[in-house]
């Protein structure tokens, strides 16, 4: 095989940004030791955060960061989907609306009128929504930000044409595997670990903090039960609502439970 042919056969990767902080894209650049291997296995065709050179689509794999918050973005994602063989969302914004989906619970017009001197120039949607509300998504990689190891696993799995080994169980399983003492049981510190998807390696409990829920709801989360446990530990209703309304506020399970607690 000639070098030319080899380059031709490499899958083309594109990285797209919507409403987000860029942190998830940075996780990719954080893969310093693996970047050479990545560029050896795939062609980085579109990644403005890393390179100005642009290779035209279609793309074999698109990584999408950020949520949909403007009419323009709602159109743009359609084109990206059409240009991509596989589309993977990266991070809480793209997967569950992000922190900016707090607007979903309020009147966004009221916000813009307070924040901006000339609100008439703001062309924004009433809600911040995950990519999957707009187009078909092949895989959702959770986290705020994503774990770079998991990102590498998703890319590797794509290259090998297999399912990514990304668990959907709770943070507690990682917490216990690393031998951390449960902060909820031993200190009475409210923790979202039991209803949050694993992936981070249970970082916060290892530093004596409750889990903040960066990876969004785990498979079949029992929210009424964890809410009751938080309230029993002395958390106020407002604190419970706030805990659910962070990076994954628009995840349907969290949104519904936060509404339920807020209205009680």
């Amino acid at each position: 095989m000639t070098t030319e042919a080899k380059t031709q056969s490499k899958p083309k990767l594109a990285v797209w940004k919507f409403a987000s902080c860029d942190g998830c894209q940075l996780s990719m650049l954080d893969l310093e030791d693996e970047l050479l291997a990545i560029t050896g296995a795939i062609e980085i065709a579109y990644f403005p955060e890393a390179t100005r050179s642009v290779v035209e689509g279609p793309y074999d794999l698109s990584l999408v960061e950020g949520s949909i918050t403007t009419p323009h973005d709602a159109e743009r994602i359609q084109q990206i989907r059409a240009d991509s063989a596989r589309l993977v969302t990266i991070g809480a914004c793209a997967t569950a609306g992000g922190i900016q989906s707090l607007r979903n619970f309020r009147d966004v017009k009221e916000f813009t009128s307070v924040v901006y001197a000339s609100p008439q120039y703001i062309d924004t949607l009433r809600t911040s929504t995950p990519i999957s509300d707009h187009v078909k998504v092949d895989f959702e990689l959770r986290g705020c930000p994503i774990n770079k190891r998991q990102l590498l696993e998703v890319i590797t799995a794509y290259v090998a044409n297999r399912k990514p080994a990304v668990p959907t169980t709770s943070v507690c399983i990682e917490c216990k595997r690393r031998g951390t003492v449960c902060v909820m049981v031993a200190n009475g510190t409210p923790c979202l670990g039991p209803i949050t998807q694993a992936g981070c390696g249970a970082i916060c409990p290892a530093y004596n903090r409750g889990c903040y829920g960066c990876y969004g709801p785990s498979e079949q989360p029992n929210l009424p039960s964890i809410s009751a446990a938080w309230l029993e530990l002395g958390a106020s209703r407002q604190e419970v609502v706030r805990a659910y309304r962070t990076f994954n506020a628009a995840a349907p399970e969290l949104a519904e439970e936060s509404e339920r607690i807020a209205s009680e």
Partner: peptide, 8 residues
């Protein structure tokens, strides 16, 4: 209704 299926 109480169990979190958390694996603990």
């Amino acid at each position: 209704s109480r169990c979190l299926s958390c694996t603990n």
